[in-house]
Design a protein around this nucleic acid. Structure first.
Length: 931
RNA sequence: GCGGGUGUGGCGAAAUUGGUAGACGUAUCAGACUUAGGAUCUGACGCCGCGAGGCAUGGGGGUUCGAGUCCCUCCACCCGCACCA
């Protein structure tokens, strides 16, 4: 009997489905465990061998936890809304719902072949109205809530209305000054004036507090995609998807008030197990810094406006201690004071400069950082020594961060230093010898000089001193700042969740819950509407009802999907509280690093909001995050002599002038090109001729991203067809540490396949058939088993799947050498192997006489008593150098101390009775003698 | 520039708290069984050396009886962020 993996895998996959063995329900008597994969976007390209890497790891862990007696929730679904489906629709005229459905079937059949233990009854699809109904519902909860900074939590907007009725907004100022309410210049108001406002004004004010809100703001507009993008979807001024240029534009947008959660998102990182890199990325994105906001009075010679309004310049700095090193001020070109303070003399220069700045695109500004700027003619007054400080304008100061204005300290800040040098501005040295006159020194450890009342003080102490002095003068205050901005939450696209919002007289009204889901209408054209409106604005039936024409972004559905898996068919609520109390946090979340600042932050924020509102019982969604590495492609290159159709083998290419072309990896065996297949591959190669080495054509190689354009995509289906799912699973794990990037190399897969065949031969002999015996095992055999159990268990707990596979291989090698076919040994081995190679272990388990369709034995428990060998071989080193070994008779069981005493005796004999200075015993494994 | 990570045979990699470095697998070489082998099995395989032995974990230094592992320093590569005041 041979190892017919295809029959076996087909058989068990069928049984698993028929008997629904991986369906799971709540069982309060058992501990739970939630293992989740980041669900895929079902693209048309299907899976390549890189995708399943994380899925296999999580599947192994899920199966392992099941064997340990846990109720394991292990679901899968599809993140199905998004741009590519819509772009495909524009190009091919296929409705996104259709192409998405088709892609999902492809994904599903590919996943099924690998033998995952998902509970498919719980599958979610974010583009399904039964799903996005609840996405819309949660949006409404966010819309109907505000962030109470005093209680530090999300609260229903009614509580805010009540407060306004009683005391106005004195205690609760408008959170974000970026937006302005039309026809309403006030910032604070009393209860009386609140009651006197028109409904429109009241609603506009409330909008400024809502967690999901609509307003005008600077957004990332991408003309190429015809939509607005969130900050994390823009990379170096280009759209993440498609690589189109992105520009700033002022548009009406929906936003999520994620900035209110900034501190909690930061704090929460301390309670979860994410990699340091991941935590770092998130906290960088949030970008918390603490410092001071300092107010400077302004002085200008001839501005009439200034006299009346007495404006002041607010700057934000993290280094208030350097206040006496300020040599000039810089404000952003977009700063509101620009027009106000510019003197007539400087007017032309400033206008010219602003024009220059406007002519530079966002991209140019980032790509080439030029030193540029212009003097406004105005001066700021130092709050302590009352000196005049010139105010400049420069593009290196960003309007969006802090107050859009800085105090420049050239001796301590590199950018300020360069600016000062470029424009020949004086540089005050406040750090003595630590400033060399050549470049800025951003030290925090200097003793201050030239700093008035701070002279001789340590910088760190001076910070506190300056802030309290400023506060006393009313010229500044302590201030915490964040880089993170509120998240743009609307897209001018078709293929997304419609907003459950109706507009009436410029006021957004939420739909009733009974009106959900607000289904996406079918459209024929996906062209955008007027002035930044989405395709929905072209549908009369839609606009007649005054429904919002934007749709939600891709991250809406993925921000809460982990909750829906718990209770996927509930028609009354998004997820029953009792059920989410049982399953709780995701215990293990597996996925790539690319979602560090997008999906992960948004879903953390939604979880906090839902927690605050009492819908769930935890405020961090993911307890532990495992980032699998990427699998790269190993491309194959061929060399064509320039201007001909003649190809030379890799070793000969240097003798010719050649062009390097990619050959499809599937046409190459190892390095050897299948020339006939190559000719048939593409018409332009049909007449190709080859110059060979040793009768063969060898290709060159290069490691690249796995993708269509490099022709290096390896499809898991083909690997599974050739070697079987179990081999594929084990091999992907064997490639290396799960969190490391690595190239796909099909060569090594043979070794894993050999292992499975070898395992099979422990049970079956070609001639004799089944050879498993019920004989009692020997101590040596038990030792092999026990060591393997220990290793596999430890490896599973620390996600070291590659070393686990090695341990299996070694175990089977040793058992083969011992000719061990004993049931007592093989049975536990199969149980352990089950997570890695579920099909073959199930089949062999079945052959052993256990008729269960899923191995339900607990993970083998390691017996406490290790078997003691009859003798122990100690390595001995003397003075840490010379090494030899020493045999100690251990025919009986001894304690470690007794072993040491014996070793001591032997050593003395060995040293001819001479007493060693010191004998060091190391973990009962080794002895070091110091003579 | 800032932050994070990695550096070990021809290659992928092991070494869990400092304790016989290179497990396991590939590749290569030699051999066995075979009509045959892309099946299976055995052996060799870090470098130098006939050998005993010596040298080896990116380079240099340190702590220790003992360092891939800990400390200092330099170098290389990868990833993320980047005019954030």
């Amino acid at each position: 009997m041979e190892y017919h993996f295809r029959d076996i895998e087909e058989k068990w996959q069928r049984q698993w489905i028929e008997q629904g063995v991986y369906q799971v329900s709540e069982d309060p008597t058992k501990p739970k465990f939630y293992v989740l994969d980041m669900f895929p976007y079902p693209s048309g390209a299907g899976l390549h061998v890189g995708h399943p890497l994380g899925y296999i790891a999580s599947d192994i862990y899920a199966r392992y936890k099941r064997l340990k007696g846990f109720r394991v929730l292990h679901p899968m679904g599809y993140d199905a809304f998004g741009l590519p489906a819509e772009q495909y629709a524009i190009e091919h005229g296929v409705h996104p719902a259709e192409s998405t459905q088709k892609n999902i079937s492809t994904f599903r059949s590919q996943l099924d072949k690998i033998g995952f233990s998902y509970d498919w009854k719980r599958q979610v699809n974010t583009s399904d109205p039964n799903y996005y109904r609840w996405t819309q519902w949660i949006f409404l909860q966010l819309f109907k809530s505000w962030y109470n900074r005093k209680n530090n939590r999300t609260e229903p907007i009614d509580t805010l209305v009540k407060i306004f009725d009683q005391e106005g907004n004195i205690q609760y100022p408008i959170p974000n000054s970026q937006f302005q309410i039309p026809d309403f210049p006030h910032v604070t108001f009393t209860a009386e004036s609140w009651k006197g406002f028109s409904e429109k004004i009241q609603q506009s004010i409330l909008m400024e507090y809502r967690i999901a809100y609509c307003g005008y703001g600077e957004v990332n507009w991408c003309e190429g995609l015809g939509t607005v993008l969130a900050n994390d979807e823009v990379i170096n001024g280009l759209s993440e998807r498609g690589g189109f240029p992105v520009e700033k534009k002022r548009l009406r947008q929906w936003y999520l008030r994620i900035t209110e959660y900034a501190d909690r998102l930061l704090q929460g990182l301390q309670t979860v197990e994410f990699s340091e890199a991941m935590k770092e990325m998130q906290s960088n994105w949030i970008g918390k810094s603490s410092g001071a906001e300092i107010t400077f009075d302004l002085l200008t010679t001839d501005s009439a406006l200034l006299k009346d309004r007495n404006p002041q310049l607010e700057v934000y700095t993290t280094r208030p201690d350097t206040l006496f090193g300020v040599d000039f001020m810089v404000i952003a070109p977009e700063h509101e004071l620009v027009d106000l303070i510019t003197t007539t003399q400087q007017k032309d220069a400033v206008t010219q400069y602003i024009a220059y700045v406007n002519s530079r695109s966002e991209r140019e500004r980032m790509a080439e950082k030029k030193i540029s700027g212009v003097f406004t003619g105005a001066y700021a007054i130092h709050p302590f020594n009352h000196q005049k400080i010139p105010v400049w304008i420069s593009e290196y100061v960003l309007a969006g961060y802090g107050t859009g204005a800085i105090m420049a300290v050239p001796c301590g800040d590199e950018r300020d230093h360069k600016f000062a040098r470029h424009f020949n501005l004086p540089i005050t040295n406040i750090i003595g010898d630590l400033y060399n006159g050549e470049e800025a020194n951003p030290t925090k450890d200097a003793l201050l000089s030239n700093s008035d009342f701070l002279n001789g003080r340590k910088m760190k102490d001076a910070m506190e001193e300056v802030i309290s002095q400023l506060e006393a003068l009313g010229k500044g205050k302590r201030k915490i700042n964040y880089k993170m901005r509120d998240a743009a939450f609307s897209r001018q696209r078709y293929w997304g969740e419609p907003f459950p919002v109706r507009w009436k007289d410029g006021i957004a009204w939420p739909l009733e819950e009974s009106e959900l889901p607000l289904e996406l209408p079918h459209v024929k054209s996906y062209q955008p509407g007027q002035e930044g409106e989405g395709p929905l604005s072209n549908i009369p039936e839609w606009t007649e009802k005054h429904l919002e024409t934007n749709t939600m972004p891709g991250y809406a559905g993925s921000s809460w999907y982990f909750l829906r898996y718990m209770d996927p068919h509930n028609d009354h609520t998004f997820c029953d509280k009792n059920i989410s109390d049982y399953w709780g946090q995701v215990d293990l979340y597996v996925g790539g690093t690319e979602h560090a600042v997008g999906h992960l932050l948004y879903s953390r924020m939604w979880t906090k909001a839902l927690f605050d509102l009492g819908y769930i019982g935890f405020d961090e969604p993911y307890r532990r995050l495992l980032n699998q590495g990427k699998i790269g492609g190993d491309s194959r290159l061929v060399y064509r002599i320039r201007g001909t159709n003649d190809f030379v083998s890799h070793g000969l290419k240097d003798s010719f002038e050649t062009d390097e072309l990619h050959a499809d990896v599937n046409l190459v065996d190892g390095l050897e090109l299948d020339m006939e297949a190559f000719k048939k591959w593409r018409p332009e190669f049909s007449g190709a001729t080859f110059q060979l080495e040793e009768g063969k054509y060898f290709c060159g190689t290069r490691l690249e991203k796995m993708g269509k354009r490099f022709f290096n995509v390896v499809n898991p289906d083909e690997v599974v067809m050739r070697y079987g799912a179990d081999t594929f699973r084990m091999y992907e794990m064997f490639l290396g540490p799960i969190d490391q990037d690595k190239p796909w190399d099909t060569k090594g897969i043979e070794g894993v396949h050999r292992f499975l065949k070898k395992l099979w031969r422990l049970f079956f002999d070609e001639l004799k058939g089944k050879i498993v015996t019920t004989n009692k095992s020997t101590p040596a055999e038990l030792k092999v088993l026990h060591r393997t159990i220990k290793k596999i268990e430890e490896d599973a707990e620390r996600f070291s799947f590659n070393t686990s596979v090695s341990a299996f291989m070694m175990c089977v090698n040793e058992l083969t050498d011992m000719k061990c076919h004993k049931r007592e040994i093989l049975e536990p081995l199969l149980v352990m192997l089950c997570p890695y190679a579920p099909h073959v272990s199930e089949e062999l388990w079945h052959q052993l006489g256990n008729t269960s369709t899923i191995i339900d034995a607990a993970f083998p428990k390691l017996e406490e008593q290790y078997l003691v060998e009859s003798s122990k071989e100690y390595p001995v080193s003397i003075n840490g150098k010379l090494r030899t070994t020493m045999q100690i008779d251990l025919s009986a069981e001894h304690t470690e101390v007794e072993e040491m005493v014996m070793a001591n005796t032997v050593i003395q004999k060995w040293l001819d009775g001479k007493l060693p200075k010191k004998i060091i015993f190391v973990k009962g494994k080794m002895v070091n003698v110091v003579v």
